[in-house]
Amino acid sequence: MLGLTTKYGSISAVRDVSLSVGEGEVVGLIGPNGAGKTTMLGTIAGLLEPTSGTVRFEGNDVSGYSPDKMLKAGLALVPEHRRIFTDLTVVENLKVGGITVGSAERSSLLDEMADLFPVLREKWDTPAGYLSGGEAQQLAIARALMSKPRLLMMDEPSLGLAPVLVDLVFELIQSLRDQGRTLLIVEQNATRMLQVADRAYVLRSGEMVAEGSGTELLERSDLFDTFVGGTSS
């Protein structure tokens, strides 16, 4: 469904990598800080342009699309640090997320989100700046779902959250997976990610160093070393 091959100039964080995501799959992209994960998602979402290489989605070449065109093509990104609009209310944030769908559909999607995220329903008219970290992350995900994406990407959804809330985020990912959604998730919390992922890629210093199913990678005893590059000396 999604295929990506990219090549960047020397001044960039990512060198020569490719990845693919099949329909209905949950794919994890893990690796330490600075590995280039965010750069990759940014490229797929159209925020950054690769020096060379292509992004293909559902058989079409979508390389070089602007972010709004990518979204209309069916790709949505929950950005790192959530980036919710703090001055807008919760429901306004959701409406912005659904700006590309018709107004009738938007209101039915709003109802759907209200069911999916009861916490948000209670704070519908609260400015999003007043939400807690966990609520804000749910809002960010709900906002992205408002565009009815066929591929949902998340950048570090558990970043900066307390352990209880990290649990909540992964439960949420699990439930999105159960709904049959296609997800591509960048995470630093590798074990948790691998537990919910069908497949995963390990990216380090701009290079793919491992790839496999979630369980396969979990069983690899050298995961920690692969991950942070420690040569057990």
């Binding site: 925020l47 972010p67 709004d68 209309k72 950005p79 609009f85 001055d87 700006i99 590309t100």
Partner: peptide, 24 residues
Amino acid sequence: TMFGLALRAAAADFDTARLMGIDS
């Protein structure tokens, strides 16, 4: 209005607004 919403979203965070499908 949706236009007003888009405008406020873009003023708050232009890049994220584009990610939400707002045409710059």
